[in-house]
Simulated assay, not measured.
Amino acid sequence: MPADTTVDWPEAVEIVNPHGRSPFVLTCEHASRHIPPEYKGLGLPEAEIARHIGWDIGAAEVTRRLSARLDAPAFLSNYSRLLIDLNRPLDADSSIPILSENTPIPGNRDLDPKERALRAERMFHPFHAAVTAHLDERRRLGRPARILAIHSFTPVFKGVKRPWHAGVLFSHSRDWGVELVEKLGRDGLTVAANQPYVIDRAEDYTIPIHGEDRGLPALLIEIRQDLIADEAGAEAWAARLAGVVG
Rank of each mutant, 00 (worst) to 15 (best):
P2L: 07
D4Q: 07
D4E: 05
T5Y: 12
T5P: 04
W9N: 13
W9L: 15
W9M: 13
V13N: 02
R21S: 15
T27H: 05
T27Y: 04
H30F: 03
S32R: 00
H34L: 00
P37F: 06
K40R: 13
L42P: 09
L42G: 08
L42W: 09
E46S: 13
A47W: 10
E48H: 14
I49M: 07
H52Q: 07
G54P: 10
I57R: 10
G58L: 03
R64K: 15
L66G: 14
A72D: 11
L76Y: 08
N78Y: 06
R81N: 07
D85K: 02
R88E: 00
A92T: 00
L99S: 01
L99H: 01
E101A: 10
T103L: 12
P106I: 04
G107H: 11
N108F: 10
N108Y: 12
P113Y: 08
P113I: 07
P113W: 08
E115D: 10
A117F: 14
H125Y: 15
P126K: 08
A130T: 10
V131W: 15
H134L: 06
D136V: 12
D136Y: 14
R138P: 10
R139Q: 13
G142H: 06
R146D: 09
I147K: 11
H151F: 08
H151T: 04
F153T: 05
F153H: 10
V156N: 04
V156E: 08
F157V: 09
F157R: 07
K158T: 08
K161M: 06
R162G: 02
A166V: 01
G167W: 02
L169C: 01
R174T: 12
W176N: 12
W176H: 15
W176I: 13
V178N: 09
V181T: 10
E182S: 14
L184C: 05
T190F: 12
V191A: 05
V191L: 04
I199N: 07
A202V: 05
E203C: 13
T206Y: 00
I207H: 01
D213Y: 14
D213R: 15
G215H: 13
P217C: 12
L219I: 05
L219K: 04
I221K: 02
E222K: 03
E222S: 05
D226C: 00
I228G: 08
G233Y: 01
E235P: 05
E235G: 10
A236E: 04
A238N: 06
A242F: 05
A242W: 05
V244R: 15
G246K: 12
